[in-house]
Design a protein around this nucleic acid. Structure first.
Length: 334
DNA sequence: AGGCGTACACATGTTACATCA
DNA sequence: TATGATGTAACATGTGTACGC
């Protein structure tokens, strides 16, 4: 693993672990490691920020540096996200059937028993509320829908649908009576569809939300909540992976530090046994002028030759590199 | 142009419920 | 059957941004 490091100085630079694969480092087998203390990469913030507008919604990328967190870790490849894809382009086997069934009527997955779809009814109300100003969702999207029945414990989920004027905003619980917090379980098909949709775009604008809700016979608020929770789960998993990776890196560096300390001790011991330092090659021990540590450099059998070939510039750069190494080890072992 | 209020979307943390071992 | 663990839907709260006035 190659380590490029910038410590301090006038122009802070990112810390980069560049190589994705290395035979020597166990913690860099499959992942690239990018640790950016400044502006983070566009790839991590693939989401982009939705520019909120009552009349239109568009995706913009994060621009200002204030939008970036101070620390970014990018360890795993994110799935490619298309910002312009439309959920209507998703192709699922179950979409090829029953796309034009009656609104409000749907069939159970197993039995084929017709049941009243309360969610569908709710959606109509919400659409009417949310959006006169909002033109009807993309006709291509709204031209079909998935008539998923909403079950809870095998029963029709109608508990929450008492609120015909259910507010789809985040502060929507006013109309909900306290006892109404019943959880419905999304069907596998609904979950799969939402997952696919999430892969396409992990945030939703209003149109997409409404279209998805319509297709899945869910309330827009449910779709919104699902995406929120899904993003949270993704982030949590990513954080766990990051922690694991950093732990391994820390262990590796600690081991390396131990090894170097041991080597240093041995060299010091060797030096004490050989008080006639003139006998030692000039480049064997180098004192770091900044932190006053001693470390080894290249040694050859001929001290005189080595001394003669070291140019002042090379010596200076070696010293700087040595000092940076010391700083890094100190940082890692703190 | 800048301040203020409002609406909205999102992140984050929590709660409550369903499911399963 | 009871129970604890787990997953997740739903909720609460705070923040940032766009927009209209």
């Amino acid at each position: 693993m190659e380590l490029a490091l910038s410590l301090g100085g006038d122009t802070p630079k990112p810390i980069l672990f560049l190589e994705k694969s290395s035979s020597s480092n166990p913690c860099s087998k499959d992942v690239g490691f990018c640790m950016d203390l400044g502006k983070c990469s566009e790839e991590l913030y693939e989401v982009g920020r939705r520019k909120r507008s009552r009349n239109h919604h568009e995706i913009i990328s994060k621009g200002s540096s204030t939008d970036h967190p101070s620390l970014q870790l990018d360890l795993l490849p994110f799935f490619p996200l298309s910002r312009n894809t439309n959920s209507s382009q998703l192709c699922f086997p179950w979409l090829s059937q029953n796309l034009a069934s009656e609104p409000g009527l749907t069939h159970g997955p197993a039995g084929g028993k017709a049941i009243l779809d309360m969610n569908r009814r709710q959606l109509v109300v919400e659409e009417a509320e949310e959006g006169a100003a909002l033109s009807s969702p993309n006709s291509e999207i709204s031209s079909f829908q998935m008539n998923f029945p909403i079950y809870r414990n095998g029963n029709l989920n109608g508990k929450r649908d008492h609120s015909e004027n259910y507010n789809s905003s985040s502060r929507a619980s006013d109309e909900e009576d306290a006892s109404a917090r019943k959880k419905l379980r999304l069907t596998k098909e609904q979950s799969a569809f939402l997952e696919e949709s999430f892969k396409e775009h992990n945030t939703l604008n209003t149109k997409q939300k409404l279209a998805l809700a319509k297709q899945l016979n869910l309330r827009p608020r449910q779709v919104e909540v699902w995406f929120q929770n899904r993003r949270a789960r993704t982030k949590l998993k990513q954080t766990e992976v990051d922690c694991e990776y950093l732990k391994k890196c820390c262990e590796t560096l600690t081991e390396e530090n131990k090894r170097l300390q041991k080597e240093l001790q041995e060299l010091r011991a060797l030096k004490s046994y050989q008080p006639f330092y003139m006998q030692l090659p000039a480049t064997t021990l180098t004192m770091c002028p900044s932190c006053e540590r001693v470390a080894t450099t290249t040694t050859t059998s001929s001290a005189a030759t080595t001394t003669a070939t070291v140019t002042p510039g090379a010596a200076a750069s070696n010293t700087v590199a040595l000092h940076n190494n010391h700083k890094l080890i100190s940082l890692m072992t703190k």
